[in-house]
C-alpha cells in the first residue's frame, strides 16, 4: 500500500533537509490532496520520490500549468471592540488578498508498484517577471514536451530544461494564450443575429445594414 501523504511528507523532510513542504487539501470527492514543494529543493524531492524503494514513482503521467489570478477572499472574523464604552463582540468582514502566481502540477504514478497518484505542485513567485521554476525533465523524461507546452501557453520558464522552445504556437508569437487575462485577436466571426457584446464587437468590424421590414 502506498503511504499517506503525511507520511511521505515526513520522509521527504528526513531525506531532503531544508525542503519546505505543504499539503494542499482537495475538497472534491476525488480525494487527491497535493504536495506543494519549495522550488529550490524540487529536483531533490523529485529524485527521492523516483528512487525511494517504497514509493518508486517512476512515471510522471501528467504535467500541466495553472494560472491563478489575484484573489480577494472575504472572511468573517469576530472582533472585540469598544462600542459606546461597552466591549462587544462584532462580526467584521476582512478582505484577504492572495497574490497571483503560476503553478505547475505533476501527477506521479508508479509503474513498478502500480500505485498513485501523488500530486506535486510548484509555484512561481508572481506571474509577471519571476516565472522561473526548476525543470523536472532530468528526472522524468515524459515532462519534456509537457513542460515545453506549459512554457508556450503559460510562460513558465523551466530552468534546466534541455530544449525549451515554443511547441504549439509559432516562434514569433509573443503572448501566452492559456493565461486567464489573454485577449485573443479580434477576428471573431459575426453571428447571424448578434446581440449584446458580440453586436458591439461586430459593429466595429463589419458593415451594418438595416433589415428590410418583413411584410406579411
Amino acid at each position: 500500500m502506498i503511504p499517506t501523504l503525511e507520511q511521505i511528507k515526513a520522509r521527504i523532510e528526513q531525506s531532503v533537509p531544508g525542503a519546505r513542504l505543504e499539503i494542499i487539501p482537495n475538497g472534491s470527492p476525488a480525494n487527491q490532496p497535493s504536495l506543494l514543494v519549495s522550488n529550490e529543493h524540487a529536483v531533490d524531492v523529485a529524485k527521492f520520490l523516483r528512487d525511494d524503494s517504497e514509493l518508486r514513482l517512476d512515471y510522471a503521467s501528467n504535467a500541466t500549468g495553472i494560472d491563478w489570478l489575484e484573489k480577494v477572499v472575504k472572511e468573517k472574523v469576530k472582533v472585540k471592540r469598544m462600542v459606546e464604552g461597552v466591549e462587544k463582540e462584532l462580526e467584521e468582514t476582512v478582505e484577504k488578498k492572495t497574490p497571483a502566481y503560476l503553478e505547475a502540477v505533476y501527477h506521479l504514478y508508479s509503474m513498478s508498484l502500480k500505485h498513485g497518484p501523488i500530486v506535486l505542485r510548484l509555484r512561481t513567485e508572481n506571474r509577471t517577471d519571476k516565472t522561473h521554476l526548476p525543470s523536472l525533465t532530468p528526472i522524468w523524461r515524459s515532462c519534456e514536451f509537457q513542460e515545453r507546452e506549459i512554457f508556450d501557453l503559460y510562460g513558465i520558464i523551466f530552468d534546466g530544461h534541455p530544449d525549451l522552445r515554443r511547441i504549439l504556437m509559432w516562434d514569433a508569437f509573443k503572448d501566452f494564450p492559456m493565461r486567464r487575462d489573454y485577449v485573443a485577436p479580434d477576428d471573431y466571426e459575426y453571428e447571424p443575429t448578434p446581440h449584446d457584446a458580440v453586436l458591439e464587437k461586430a459593429k466595429c468590424h463589419f458593415p451594418i445594414v438595416e433589415t428590410p421590414e418583413v411584410k406579411p
Binding site: 514569433a172 508569437f173 509573443k174 485577436p185 477576428d187 443575429t193 453586436l199 468590424h205 445594414v209 433589415t211
Partner: peptide, 24 residues
C-alpha cells in the same frame, strides 16, 4: 506571415468581404 499576435494580414481583402451584420 506569422505575426506577433496573429497572422499578417488577417484576411485577404480582395477575396473575402465580411457579410453585413443584420440588425433588427
Amino acid at each position: 506571415e506569422f505575426g506577433e499576435h496573429d497572422l499578417v494580414p488577417s484576411k485577404n481583402e480582395q477575396l473575402w468581404k465580411p457579410a453585413p451584420v443584420v440588425r433588427n
